[in-house]
Amino acid sequence: MINNFNYTAHGQQDYLRLPTVNLGGTDSAFFSFNVAAAIFTDTAATNNSWDTLEVLLSTDCGLSYTSLYKKWGATLVTHANADISFFVPSAIDWRKDSVNLTPYINSGNILLAFRNITENKNNIYLDDVNVLTLTINPNLKAAGFLVTPNPATSNIQVQFYPNPFGLRGIGCII
């Protein structure tokens, strides 16, 4: 939990750095997390400043960062109404957000971090933080077209890699 409600500084930046990961050998990767956030004043209020949540990625152990996700105000909140009390989320206040890490699968060790920039509004909660990877079946990558399982008893899956551009149709023939 990021306690912006009681964090009276403005513009203060704090980092939650995660253990480094190496995505090498995978074909796609995503960073996902659940977030719950509320604000103190209406999102339509003008001349306001907002608590900001970012997801940052570093390929040089934190010397420099690239921002992959940045939300504040109406884009960040998950609690519908402005809340002038200390925000504690209920089950319906959570949202799953994700960031595509596929461009970084060949970047060696990467460091992911959350950055909170406080404006003393209300709390932000994070949970269920995961790095998800997908590895394509090497036989599918080599052939570009695969039918599995084989032999089969019920459903068969016809898979293409990459996307089957120019495909008109698929038929099963006895």
Partner: peptide, 17 residues
């Protein structure tokens, strides 16, 4: 059985038991 995929420029097939 034979699974047959028809593309604009080619046809590919796979046998399945």
């Amino acid at each position: 059985y034979v699974v047959r995929a028809v593309f604009d420029d080619r046809v590919v097939i796979k046998k399945v038991i």
